[in-house]
Design a protein around this nucleic acid. Structure first.
Lengths: 113, 113
DNA sequence: GTCATGCTTAGCCATATGACTAAGTAACGC
DNA sequence: GCGTTACTTAGTCATATGGCTAAGCATGAC
């Protein structure tokens, strides 16, 4: 009950950046070429490319080059491992809620000192 | 439809490290003092402290000091923002699946060249 | 062919991250 | 009081990350 560690790190890491999350949001509306993804960010192209490659390594997007245009698209299944991890954790965490509830209250009280 | 950016970055960042995830898993079994969290990692105490503070900043754990012992406990609600983001994204991503399906296939074909 | 377009590569820079050692402080336990 | 325990703080170090500019290299339009 803890074999959920394949490539969660790159996934979480990719999502930890607001620029990358906003790129994903943009891509959720449909595939787009690199330049189009770059323009709203105000970042230089090489910088954008590196964000994209982080997303690609994490499996969150797929890209393909047609002529001189590279088009990016989201890979919906990529979120699955994260959802599994979340489900698993929430299951354990919440089953402990009863006993934790009192505990957290104690902590909060002590923190006010 | 994109107001989901309060503190997702620290949250994802905290979860992007395997050491921190394993600490969370340990804490899911119940609260524990710092030393107990440190021992399975083989890391020096100051290093562990910094991991814990990352988790605390992300709101994933709460700590309290009683005498010379600092006890750490998970904060189950902390995963909620992440779940919201996931739900939101998945909703959009999957609604595009139909039109994306063909697109991704095209990409895959081109990648084989 | 020539030139603009759209990436790509290379290399630099500042800051952040993850890990350490060494030394300090604040409870216990006797 | 004195040593041990459990953190804490301070400071160092190597590497990673996020940003840039400057060139380079195909492709598409004339």
């Amino acid at each position: 009950m803890a074999k959920h560690d394949p490539d969660l790190s790159p996934l979480f890491h990719a999502l930890a950046d607001p620029t990358r999350r906003s790129m994903l949001t943009r891509l959720a509306a449909g595939p787009a070429p690199v330049t189009e993804l770059a323009s709203p960010t105000g970042l230089a192209l090489p910088t954008v490319m590196r964000h994209l490659s982080v997303l690609e390594v994490a499996g969150l997007i797929a890209t393909s080059k047609d002529g001189r245009v590279r088009t990016c698209a989201i890979v919906p299944e990529a979120l699955a491992p994260m959802q599994s991890w979340l489900d698993e954790q929430r299951l354990i965490w919440e089953s402990r809620l009863d006993r934790l509830d009192d505990y957290v209250k104690t902590i909060m009280k002590e923190r006010e000192r």
